[in-house]
Design a protein around this nucleic acid. Sequence first.
DNA 1: GTCCTTGCAAAGCGTTTGCACAGAA
DNA 2: TTCTGTGCAAACGCTTTGCAAGGAC
Lengths: 134, 134
Amino acid sequence: MNKSSETHLREANISPSYTRVMIYDYLKINHNHPNVDEIYKALCKKLHTLSKTTVYNVLKLFLEKDIARKVTISSSEDKYELTCEDHSHFKCKVCNKLYDIPLVKTEYSTATLKGFKVNNEEVLLTGICVNCNK
Amino acid sequence: MNKSSETHLREANISPSYTRVMIYDYLKINHNHPNVDEIYKALCKKLHTLSKTTVYNVLKLFLEKDIARKVTISSSEDKYELTCEDHSHFKCKVCNKLYDIPLVKTEYSTATLKGFKVNNEEVLLTGICVNCNK
DNA sequence: GTCCTTGCAAAGCGTTTGCACAGAA
DNA sequence: TTCTGTGCAAACGCTTTGCAAGGAC
């Protein structure tokens, strides 16, 4: 069990059960925006009694406590990642892989958004990735 | 039936059936990114025999022919809009309404995306809209 | 006749809910 | 005891699929 992951969970007011730490660590190590099924299948190897419901429960808790978020890219499956330093995403339309890329800066006139309070900016680039672009 | 909508469909190699024109017009008039159910319910009033399957079929065709696209914002329902001049989106986290806003410019270093071909950029701002921000 | 459009019904699949059981406090 | 974490099973909701009927050509 990872000490620092336990600490992160505690800081978010989540009691660090074994399962929760496992899921947290999985997200921490795997930056490939896994969906529920991928997390479930990967952790089943170590946690033989794990159920998908628990994965859903834990991820829901992580979202509520703001230590993880859904990455909603044009597809009907929910993907997840830990809330961390800002970055943007690139989605390859050939292989459908989703890449983390350095933060894309944005520029817009605040005048057109008068009265609107902006808390968050997300940028998604789509195109062809380096592997498919050959 | 709208003459110019018929033309748009023909230009996209879609034979302009009555139902297709109706759905196209609905998307053309309603810029509120409707989901399938909203389109279905709205058009049922005029097309009493309409089925959801047909709405799905037509939207799928529109996506294939690139005259419409899914707007995938963190929620599990698919929303649709016509492919048109570029704009960005603002999502209010209080009322969940999705606004069209003027195009947000982006800035990123092409060096970090060496080998990647970028075809499209999408920006989503989230926050509190003018109506909820009172 | 064939092809295209539409739509009912069923299946599929990801997700949520209800409930129960075991362990911790 | 109560509260918490987990997980089976069922329900749920959106979407897709299979297939058939009717119309266009």
